[in-house]
Design a protein around this nucleic acid. Sequence first.
DNA 1: GCGGCGCTCCCCCGCGCGGGTGACGCGCAA
DNA 2: TTGCGCGTCACCCGCGCGGGGGAGCGCCGC
Lengths: 218, 218
Amino acid sequence: MNIVIVDDDPLVRMGLRAIVSSEPGWTVVGEAGDGHEALATVEQQRPDLVLMDVRMPRMDGLAATRQIVAAEWGARVLVLTTFEVDEYVFEAMRAGASGFVLKRVPPAELIEAVRVVASGESLLFPASTRSVIERFAEPQPAATLPELTEREADVLRLLARGLSNGEIAVELFVSIETVKSHVASILMKIGVRDRTQAVIAAYEAGFVKPGDAEGQPR
Amino acid sequence: MNIVIVDDDPLVRMGLRAIVSSEPGWTVVGEAGDGHEALATVEQQRPDLVLMDVRMPRMDGLAATRQIVAAEWGARVLVLTTFEVDEYVFEAMRAGASGFVLKRVPPAELIEAVRVVASGESLLFPASTRSVIERFAEPQPAATLPELTEREADVLRLLARGLSNGEIAVELFVSIETVKSHVASILMKIGVRDRTQAVIAAYEAGFVKPGDAEGQPR
DNA sequence: GCGGCGCTCCCCCGCGCGGGTGACGCGCAA
DNA sequence: TTGCGCGTCACCCGCGCGGGGGAGCGCCGC
Protein backbone atom coordinates (compact mmCIF):
# COMPACT_ATOMS: atom_id res chain seq x y z
CA MET A 1 0.00 0.00 0.00
CA ASN A 2 1.35 3.39 -1.01
CA ILE A 3 0.89 6.33 1.28
CA VAL A 4 1.49 10.07 1.01
CA ILE A 5 1.99 12.15 4.14
CA VAL A 6 0.91 15.79 4.21
CA ASP A 7 1.82 18.03 7.14
CA ASP A 8 3.50 21.39 7.40
CA ASP A 9 5.74 20.23 10.25
CA PRO A 10 8.70 18.12 9.07
CA LEU A 11 9.00 16.54 12.50
CA VAL A 12 5.42 15.36 12.43
CA ARG A 13 5.98 13.96 8.96
CA MET A 14 8.99 12.04 10.22
CA GLY A 15 7.01 10.66 13.11
CA LEU A 16 4.14 9.56 10.90
CA ARG A 17 6.53 8.07 8.39
CA ALA A 18 8.19 6.07 11.14
CA ILE A 19 4.85 4.76 12.35
CA VAL A 20 3.28 3.73 9.06
CA SER A 21 6.40 2.45 7.37
CA SER A 22 6.91 0.08 10.27
CA GLU A 23 4.01 -1.94 8.90
CA PRO A 24 5.06 -4.58 6.40
CA GLY A 25 3.82 -3.79 2.91
CA TRP A 26 3.19 -0.12 3.61
CA THR A 27 5.34 2.39 1.80
CA VAL A 28 5.52 6.15 2.14
CA VAL A 29 5.84 7.28 -1.47
CA GLY A 30 5.78 11.00 -0.89
CA GLU A 31 5.50 13.90 1.52
CA ALA A 32 4.11 17.40 1.20
CA GLY A 33 4.17 20.51 3.39
CA ASP A 34 1.03 22.24 2.21
CA GLY A 35 -2.08 21.70 0.12
CA HIS A 36 -0.54 22.66 -3.19
CA GLU A 37 2.41 20.36 -2.75
CA ALA A 38 -0.03 17.67 -1.68
CA LEU A 39 -1.98 17.90 -4.92
CA ALA A 40 1.19 17.73 -6.99
CA THR A 41 2.60 14.82 -5.02
CA VAL A 42 -0.64 12.88 -5.12
CA GLU A 43 -0.96 13.40 -8.85
CA GLN A 44 2.53 12.07 -9.41
CA GLN A 45 2.48 9.16 -7.02
CA ARG A 46 -1.17 8.09 -7.20
CA PRO A 47 -1.09 6.72 -3.64
CA ASP A 48 -3.78 4.50 -2.15
CA LEU A 49 -4.11 6.68 0.89
CA VAL A 50 -3.21 10.17 2.05
CA LEU A 51 -2.57 11.20 5.63
CA MET A 52 -3.69 14.82 5.64
CA ASP A 53 -3.11 17.55 8.19
CA VAL A 54 -5.84 20.21 8.44
CA ARG A 55 -4.04 23.40 9.35
CA MET A 56 -1.43 24.23 6.78
CA PRO A 57 -0.16 27.33 4.98
CA ARG A 58 -1.22 28.23 1.43
CA MET A 59 -3.93 25.62 1.02
CA ASP A 60 -5.43 23.84 3.99
CA GLY A 61 -6.04 20.14 4.24
CA LEU A 62 -9.76 20.38 3.67
CA ALA A 63 -9.44 22.12 0.31
CA ALA A 64 -6.74 19.69 -0.70
CA THR A 65 -8.90 16.77 0.37
CA ARG A 66 -11.79 18.04 -1.71
CA GLN A 67 -9.65 18.11 -4.82
CA ILE A 68 -7.96 14.79 -4.21
CA VAL A 69 -11.24 13.01 -3.63
CA ALA A 70 -12.81 14.71 -6.64
CA ALA A 71 -10.04 13.52 -8.95
CA GLU A 72 -10.91 10.46 -10.96
CA TRP A 73 -8.36 8.07 -9.43
CA GLY A 74 -9.61 9.18 -6.00
CA ALA A 75 -7.22 8.27 -3.24
CA ARG A 76 -8.77 7.83 0.19
CA VAL A 77 -7.92 10.50 2.71
CA LEU A 78 -7.43 10.13 6.45
CA VAL A 79 -7.51 13.53 8.10
CA LEU A 80 -5.23 14.13 11.06
CA THR A 81 -5.69 16.98 13.45
CA THR A 82 -4.16 18.25 16.64
CA PHE A 83 -7.24 19.63 18.31
CA GLU A 84 -10.67 18.13 18.21
CA VAL A 85 -12.39 21.21 16.88
CA ASP A 86 -15.83 20.05 15.94
CA GLU A 87 -16.22 22.13 12.84
CA TYR A 88 -13.24 20.44 11.29
CA VAL A 89 -14.97 17.09 11.55
CA PHE A 90 -17.99 18.18 9.58
CA GLU A 91 -15.91 20.07 7.06
CA ALA A 92 -13.63 17.10 6.59
CA MET A 93 -16.55 14.76 6.08
CA ARG A 94 -18.09 17.06 3.54
CA ALA A 95 -14.75 17.39 1.83
CA GLY A 96 -14.83 13.66 1.28
CA ALA A 97 -12.38 12.41 3.87
CA SER A 98 -12.75 8.80 4.93
CA GLY A 99 -11.56 9.29 8.44
CA PHE A 100 -10.78 11.78 11.14
CA VAL A 101 -8.19 11.00 13.79
CA LEU A 102 -6.35 12.96 16.45
CA LYS A 103 -2.60 13.06 16.02
CA ARG A 104 -2.02 12.18 19.62
CA VAL A 105 -3.61 8.73 19.48
CA PRO A 106 -1.19 5.88 20.15
CA PRO A 107 0.62 4.53 17.07
CA ALA A 108 -1.26 1.24 17.22
CA GLU A 109 -4.57 3.07 16.91
CA LEU A 110 -3.31 5.18 14.07
CA ILE A 111 -2.21 2.05 12.22
CA GLU A 112 -5.58 0.50 12.88
CA ALA A 113 -7.24 3.63 11.51
CA VAL A 114 -5.16 3.47 8.36
CA ARG A 115 -6.03 -0.17 7.95
CA VAL A 116 -9.75 0.54 8.32
CA VAL A 117 -9.73 3.44 5.90
CA ALA A 118 -7.64 1.54 3.37
CA SER A 119 -10.16 -1.29 3.49
CA GLY A 120 -12.74 1.09 2.08
CA GLU A 121 -14.51 1.78 5.34
CA SER A 122 -14.54 4.97 7.36
CA LEU A 123 -13.63 5.91 10.85
CA LEU A 124 -13.91 8.81 13.24
CA PHE A 125 -12.19 9.58 16.49
CA PRO A 126 -14.68 8.65 19.24
CA ALA A 127 -15.20 12.18 20.52
CA SER A 128 -15.88 13.26 16.95
CA THR A 129 -18.33 10.46 16.48
CA ARG A 130 -20.19 11.81 19.43
CA SER A 131 -20.49 15.25 17.83
CA VAL A 132 -21.74 13.68 14.66
CA ILE A 133 -24.32 11.57 16.40
CA GLU A 134 -25.55 14.53 18.36
CA ARG A 135 -25.91 16.55 15.25
CA PHE A 136 -27.91 13.72 13.78
CA ALA A 137 -30.09 13.32 16.80
CA GLU A 138 -30.96 16.94 17.45
CA PRO A 139 -32.35 18.33 14.20
CA GLN A 140 -35.62 16.55 14.78
CA PRO A 141 -37.18 18.42 17.68
CA ALA A 142 -35.96 21.80 16.39
CA ALA A 143 -39.23 23.63 16.09
CA THR A 144 -42.70 22.22 16.03
CA LEU A 145 -45.76 23.16 14.03
CA PRO A 146 -49.19 23.52 15.62
CA GLU A 147 -51.69 20.94 14.51
CA LEU A 148 -52.82 21.57 10.98
CA THR A 149 -55.82 19.97 9.38
CA GLU A 150 -55.22 17.62 6.49
CA ARG A 151 -56.17 20.20 3.91
CA GLU A 152 -54.05 22.89 5.51
CA ALA A 153 -51.10 20.51 5.43
CA ASP A 154 -51.67 19.98 1.71
CA VAL A 155 -51.66 23.69 1.14
CA LEU A 156 -48.55 24.22 3.25
CA ARG A 157 -46.73 21.53 1.29
CA LEU A 158 -47.53 23.33 -1.96
CA LEU A 159 -46.69 26.70 -0.41
CA ALA A 160 -43.30 25.25 0.45
CA ARG A 161 -42.79 24.47 -3.20
CA GLY A 162 -43.27 28.07 -4.14
CA LEU A 163 -46.72 27.89 -5.67
CA SER A 164 -48.98 30.95 -5.75
CA ASN A 165 -52.53 30.81 -4.44
CA GLY A 166 -53.82 30.42 -7.97
CA GLU A 167 -51.49 27.54 -8.74
CA ILE A 168 -52.40 25.82 -5.50
CA ALA A 169 -56.07 26.20 -6.40
CA VAL A 170 -55.49 24.44 -9.72
CA GLU A 171 -53.41 21.75 -8.05
CA LEU A 172 -56.08 21.02 -5.46
CA PHE A 173 -59.11 21.54 -7.74
CA VAL A 174 -60.62 24.24 -5.57
CA SER A 175 -61.18 27.96 -5.98
CA ILE A 176 -58.63 30.62 -5.17
CA GLU A 177 -60.86 31.84 -2.39
CA THR A 178 -60.65 28.48 -0.70
CA VAL A 179 -56.90 28.48 -0.92
CA LYS A 180 -56.74 31.96 0.54
CA SER A 181 -58.93 30.77 3.34
CA HIS A 182 -56.61 27.86 4.11
CA VAL A 183 -53.55 30.02 3.86
CA ALA A 184 -55.07 32.46 6.31
CA SER A 185 -55.71 29.61 8.76
CA ILE A 186 -52.15 28.39 8.38
CA LEU A 187 -50.68 31.83 8.97
CA MET A 188 -52.81 32.30 12.06
CA LYS A 189 -52.13 28.85 13.48
CA ILE A 190 -48.38 28.98 13.21
CA GLY A 191 -48.36 32.64 14.14
CA VAL A 192 -46.56 34.16 11.18
CA ARG A 193 -47.24 37.09 8.93
CA ASP A 194 -46.90 35.88 5.36
CA ARG A 195 -46.42 32.84 3.19
CA THR A 196 -42.65 33.23 3.19
CA GLN A 197 -42.45 32.95 6.95
CA ALA A 198 -44.79 29.97 6.76
CA VAL A 199 -42.41 28.22 4.38
CA ILE A 200 -39.49 29.01 6.68
CA ALA A 201 -41.39 27.54 9.61
CA ALA A 202 -42.12 24.45 7.53
CA TYR A 203 -38.43 23.97 6.86
CA GLU A 204 -37.42 24.70 10.44
CA ALA A 205 -39.94 22.22 11.79
CA GLY A 206 -38.83 19.54 9.38
CA PHE A 207 -42.29 19.60 7.84
CA VAL A 208 -40.49 19.77 4.54
CA LYS A 209 -36.83 18.98 4.08
CA PRO A 210 -34.28 20.19 1.57
CA GLY A 211 -34.56 17.82 -1.35
CA ASP A 212 -38.31 17.52 -1.14
CA ALA A 213 -38.79 20.18 -3.79
CA GLU A 214 -36.10 18.99 -6.20
CA GLY A 215 -36.63 20.35 -9.62
CA GLN A 216 -40.10 21.55 -10.41
CA PRO A 217 -40.37 24.79 -8.42
CA ARG A 218 -39.85 26.57 -11.81
CA MET B 1 -19.35 -0.42 36.09
CA ASN B 2 -22.78 -2.03 35.98
CA ILE B 3 -24.07 -3.44 32.74
CA VAL B 4 -27.40 -4.80 31.55
CA ILE B 5 -27.53 -7.17 28.59
CA VAL B 6 -30.59 -7.21 26.32
CA ASP B 7 -30.97 -9.89 23.63
CA ASP B 8 -33.72 -12.33 22.78
CA ASP B 9 -31.24 -15.18 22.38
CA PRO B 10 -30.09 -16.66 25.72
CA LEU B 11 -26.95 -18.03 24.10
CA VAL B 12 -25.94 -14.62 22.84
CA ARG B 13 -26.58 -13.20 26.28
CA MET B 14 -24.33 -15.80 27.80
CA GLY B 15 -21.61 -15.04 25.30
CA LEU B 16 -21.82 -11.31 25.93
CA ARG B 17 -21.88 -11.87 29.68
CA ALA B 18 -18.76 -13.97 29.42
CA ILE B 19 -16.97 -11.30 27.43
CA VAL B 20 -17.82 -8.24 29.46
CA SER B 21 -17.63 -9.84 32.90
CA SER B 22 -14.09 -10.92 32.12
CA GLU B 23 -13.06 -7.31 32.55
CA PRO B 24 -12.14 -6.40 36.12
CA GLY B 25 -14.63 -3.98 37.64
CA TRP B 26 -17.38 -4.73 35.16
CA THR B 27 -20.49 -6.45 36.43
CA VAL B 28 -23.52 -7.75 34.57
CA VAL B 29 -26.37 -6.72 36.86
CA GLY B 30 -29.23 -7.91 34.69
CA GLU B 31 -30.44 -9.49 31.51
CA ALA B 32 -33.57 -9.07 29.41
CA GLY B 33 -35.05 -10.90 26.45
CA ASP B 34 -37.13 -8.13 24.91
CA GLY B 35 -37.74 -4.42 25.08
CA HIS B 36 -40.31 -4.52 27.85
CA GLU B 37 -38.14 -6.63 30.08
CA ALA B 38 -35.27 -4.32 29.27
CA LEU B 39 -37.15 -1.27 30.53
CA ALA B 40 -38.12 -3.04 33.73
CA THR B 41 -34.63 -4.36 34.35
CA VAL B 42 -32.98 -1.04 33.65
CA GLU B 43 -35.38 0.75 35.95
CA GLN B 44 -34.58 -1.64 38.77
CA GLN B 45 -30.85 -1.89 38.32
CA ARG B 46 -30.00 1.59 37.06
CA PRO B 47 -26.96 0.34 35.15
CA ASP B 48 -24.28 2.57 33.69
CA LEU B 49 -24.53 0.93 30.32
CA VAL B 50 -26.90 -1.26 28.33
CA LEU B 51 -25.89 -3.68 25.59
CA MET B 52 -28.96 -3.65 23.37
CA ASP B 53 -29.96 -5.97 20.57
CA VAL B 54 -32.07 -4.44 17.78
CA ARG B 55 -34.34 -7.22 16.58
CA MET B 56 -36.40 -8.54 19.43
CA PRO B 57 -39.99 -9.66 19.96
CA ARG B 58 -42.60 -7.42 21.61
CA MET B 59 -40.57 -4.23 21.71
CA ASP B 60 -37.49 -3.79 19.58
CA GLY B 61 -34.20 -2.38 20.76
CA LEU B 62 -34.68 0.99 19.16
CA ALA B 63 -37.92 1.75 20.96
CA ALA B 64 -36.41 0.50 24.20
CA THR B 65 -33.34 2.66 23.63
CA ARG B 66 -35.49 5.73 23.11
CA GLN B 67 -37.21 5.22 26.45
CA ILE B 68 -34.07 4.37 28.37
CA VAL B 69 -32.21 7.40 27.08
CA ALA B 70 -35.21 9.63 27.68
CA ALA B 71 -35.44 8.58 31.31
CA GLU B 72 -33.86 11.01 33.72
CA TRP B 73 -31.06 8.77 34.99
CA GLY B 74 -30.16 8.06 31.37
CA ALA B 75 -27.99 5.01 30.99
CA ARG B 76 -25.82 4.94 27.92
CA VAL B 77 -26.79 2.41 25.28
CA LEU B 78 -24.52 0.44 22.98
CA VAL B 79 -26.55 -1.12 20.20
CA LEU B 80 -25.53 -4.55 18.96
CA THR B 81 -26.69 -5.93 15.69
CA THR B 82 -26.12 -8.99 13.57
CA PHE B 83 -26.42 -7.45 10.16
CA GLU B 84 -25.17 -4.06 9.14
CA VAL B 85 -28.46 -2.77 7.82
CA ASP B 86 -27.93 0.90 7.25
CA GLU B 87 -31.33 2.08 8.38
CA TYR B 88 -30.73 0.65 11.80
CA VAL B 89 -27.73 2.87 12.25
CA PHE B 90 -29.63 6.07 11.64
CA GLU B 91 -32.58 4.92 13.69
CA ALA B 92 -30.32 3.92 16.55
CA MET B 93 -28.56 7.25 16.48
CA ARG B 94 -31.82 9.12 16.53
CA ALA B 95 -33.05 6.90 19.31
CA GLY B 96 -30.15 8.17 21.37
CA ALA B 97 -27.76 5.24 21.30
CA SER B 98 -24.12 6.02 21.97
CA GLY B 99 -22.72 3.33 19.78
CA PHE B 100 -23.43 0.80 17.10
CA VAL B 101 -21.40 -2.39 16.87
CA LEU B 102 -21.71 -5.66 15.01
CA LYS B 103 -22.04 -8.71 17.20
CA ARG B 104 -19.40 -10.57 15.28
CA VAL B 105 -16.54 -8.24 16.11
CA PRO B 106 -13.76 -9.84 18.15
CA PRO B 107 -14.25 -9.70 21.94
CA ALA B 108 -11.36 -7.29 22.34
CA GLU B 109 -13.04 -4.78 20.03
CA LEU B 110 -16.33 -5.18 21.80
CA ILE B 111 -14.68 -4.49 25.13
CA GLU B 112 -12.96 -1.48 23.64
CA ALA B 113 -16.32 -0.28 22.34
CA VAL B 114 -17.88 -0.62 25.77
CA ARG B 115 -14.99 1.28 27.29
CA VAL B 116 -15.34 4.10 24.78
CA VAL B 117 -19.07 4.39 25.23
CA ALA B 118 -18.82 4.24 29.00
CA SER B 119 -16.30 7.08 28.91
CA GLY B 120 -19.03 9.29 27.51
CA GLU B 121 -17.88 9.19 23.93
CA SER B 122 -19.55 7.48 21.01
CA LEU B 123 -18.54 4.91 18.52
CA LEU B 124 -19.77 3.32 15.33
CA PHE B 125 -18.77 0.22 13.50
CA PRO B 126 -16.52 1.35 10.62
CA ALA B 127 -18.87 0.31 7.84
CA SER B 128 -21.64 2.20 9.59
CA THR B 129 -19.44 5.24 9.93
CA ARG B 130 -19.05 5.17 6.21
CA SER B 131 -22.81 5.26 5.69
CA VAL B 132 -23.09 8.14 8.07
CA ILE B 133 -20.35 10.12 6.41
CA GLU B 134 -21.85 9.56 3.02
CA ARG B 135 -25.20 10.77 4.20
CA PHE B 136 -23.48 13.85 5.51
CA ALA B 137 -21.52 14.44 2.36
CA GLU B 138 -24.32 14.15 -0.17
CA PRO B 139 -26.89 16.76 0.80
CA GLN B 140 -24.57 19.55 -0.32
CA PRO B 141 -24.59 19.34 -4.10
CA ALA B 142 -28.40 19.34 -4.17
CA ALA B 143 -28.98 22.60 -5.96
CA THR B 144 -26.62 25.47 -6.47
CA LEU B 145 -27.16 29.21 -6.40
CA PRO B 146 -25.79 31.53 -9.08
CA GLU B 147 -23.13 33.90 -7.89
CA LEU B 148 -24.60 36.60 -5.73
CA THR B 149 -22.84 39.78 -4.74
CA GLU B 150 -22.03 40.27 -1.09
CA ARG B 151 -24.94 42.61 -0.58
CA GLU B 152 -27.38 40.35 -2.38
CA ALA B 153 -26.26 37.51 -0.15
CA ASP B 154 -26.98 39.68 2.89
CA VAL B 155 -30.45 40.40 1.60
CA LEU B 156 -31.13 36.76 0.78
CA ARG B 157 -30.07 35.75 4.28
CA LEU B 158 -32.59 38.17 5.75
CA LEU B 159 -35.23 37.14 3.24
CA ALA B 160 -34.71 33.60 4.45
CA ARG B 161 -35.50 34.76 7.94
CA GLY B 162 -38.84 36.07 6.85
CA LEU B 163 -38.16 39.78 6.94
CA SER B 164 -40.15 42.18 4.76
CA ASN B 165 -38.42 44.65 2.47
CA GLY B 166 -38.94 47.38 5.04
CA GLU B 167 -37.46 45.32 7.85
CA ILE B 168 -34.49 44.39 5.72
CA ALA B 169 -33.97 48.07 4.95
CA VAL B 170 -33.84 48.88 8.65
CA GLU B 171 -31.53 45.94 9.32
CA LEU B 172 -29.08 46.97 6.62
CA PHE B 173 -29.40 50.75 7.13
CA VAL B 174 -30.50 51.42 3.56
CA SER B 175 -33.72 52.58 1.95
CA ILE B 176 -36.56 50.31 0.96
CA GLU B 177 -35.88 51.15 -2.66
CA THR B 178 -32.40 49.73 -2.37
CA VAL B 179 -33.71 46.55 -0.85
CA LYS B 180 -36.26 46.20 -3.60
CA SER B 181 -33.49 46.65 -6.10
CA HIS B 182 -31.41 43.88 -4.51
CA VAL B 183 -34.39 41.59 -4.22
CA ALA B 184 -35.12 42.10 -7.91
CA SER B 185 -31.53 41.17 -8.75
CA ILE B 186 -31.76 38.06 -6.59
CA LEU B 187 -35.01 36.95 -8.18
CA MET B 188 -33.62 37.44 -11.64
CA LYS B 189 -30.29 35.74 -10.92
CA ILE B 190 -31.72 32.60 -9.43
CA GLY B 191 -34.60 32.62 -11.87
CA VAL B 192 -37.58 32.59 -9.55
CA ARG B 193 -40.75 34.59 -9.33
CA ASP B 194 -41.09 35.79 -5.78
CA ARG B 195 -39.37 36.00 -2.43
CA THR B 196 -40.92 32.75 -1.25
CA GLN B 197 -39.37 30.79 -4.09
CA ALA B 198 -36.09 32.57 -3.39
CA VAL B 199 -36.18 31.36 0.21
CA ILE B 200 -36.95 27.83 -0.95
CA ALA B 201 -34.01 27.98 -3.33
CA ALA B 202 -31.83 29.19 -0.46
CA TYR B 203 -32.81 26.18 1.64
CA GLU B 204 -32.47 23.74 -1.23
CA ALA B 205 -29.02 25.02 -2.07
CA GLY B 206 -27.90 24.84 1.52
CA PHE B 207 -27.40 28.60 1.48
CA VAL B 208 -29.33 28.55 4.72
CA LYS B 209 -29.95 25.46 6.79
CA PRO B 210 -32.72 24.54 9.18
CA GLY B 211 -31.59 25.84 12.55
CA ASP B 212 -30.04 28.98 11.15
CA ALA B 213 -33.16 30.96 11.92
CA GLU B 214 -33.77 29.63 15.42
CA GLY B 215 -35.92 31.94 17.39
CA GLN B 216 -36.19 35.46 16.09
CA PRO B 217 -38.32 35.06 12.97
CA ARG B 218 -41.34 36.21 15.02
C1' DG C 1 -9.71 58.22 -19.07
C1' DC C 2 -13.52 55.48 -19.78
C1' DG C 3 -16.47 51.59 -19.35
C1' DG C 4 -18.40 48.17 -16.33
C1' DC C 5 -20.19 46.72 -12.08
C1' DG C 6 -21.79 46.95 -7.40
C1' DC C 7 -24.41 49.72 -4.34
C1' DT C 8 -27.40 53.23 -3.54
C1' DC C 9 -31.81 55.74 -4.32
C1' DC C 10 -36.03 57.41 -6.80
C1' DC C 11 -40.80 57.07 -9.38
C1' DC C 12 -44.96 54.66 -11.42
C1' DC C 13 -47.93 50.89 -12.07
C1' DG C 14 -50.56 46.50 -11.58
C1' DC C 15 -51.60 42.65 -9.03
C1' DG C 16 -51.13 39.14 -5.64
C1' DC C 17 -51.46 38.72 -1.04
C1' DG C 18 -53.26 39.11 3.66
C1' DG C 19 -57.15 40.78 6.80
C1' DG C 20 -61.98 41.04 7.70
C1' DT C 21 -66.55 39.19 7.38
C1' DG C 22 -69.97 36.13 5.94
C1' DA C 23 -72.13 31.98 4.11
C1' DC C 24 -73.30 26.93 3.09
C1' DG C 25 -73.07 21.78 3.49
C1' DC C 26 -71.21 17.98 5.83
C1' DG C 27 -69.99 14.83 9.60
C1' DC C 28 -69.61 14.11 14.37
C1' DA C 29 -70.33 14.50 19.17
C1' DA C 30 -72.71 16.52 23.03
C1' DT D 1 -81.60 18.51 17.96
C1' DT D 2 -78.11 21.71 18.48
C1' DG D 3 -73.89 22.77 18.17
C1' DC D 4 -68.84 22.73 16.35
C1' DG D 5 -64.99 21.97 13.22
C1' DC D 6 -63.75 21.35 8.60
C1' DG D 7 -63.78 22.40 3.83
C1' DT D 8 -65.69 25.09 0.39
C1' DC D 9 -66.65 29.69 -1.74
C1' DA D 10 -67.52 34.81 -2.00
C1' DC D 11 -66.66 40.05 -1.74
C1' DC D 12 -64.09 44.24 -0.23
C1' DC D 13 -60.13 46.71 1.06
C1' DG D 14 -55.30 48.21 1.74
C1' DC D 15 -50.67 47.48 1.07
C1' DG D 16 -46.54 45.02 0.08
C1' DC D 17 -44.46 43.15 -3.56
C1' DG D 18 -42.59 42.56 -8.22
C1' DG D 19 -41.74 44.68 -12.90
C1' DG D 20 -40.69 48.55 -15.53
C1' DG D 21 -37.97 52.84 -15.99
C1' DG D 22 -33.81 55.96 -14.70
C1' DA D 23 -29.75 57.99 -12.10
C1' DG D 24 -25.70 59.06 -9.27
C1' DC D 25 -21.50 57.39 -6.86
C1' DG D 26 -17.09 54.83 -6.11
C1' DC D 27 -13.98 51.17 -7.38
C1' DC D 28 -11.54 48.37 -10.52
C1' DG D 29 -9.50 47.02 -14.87
C1' DC D 30 -8.51 47.82 -19.64
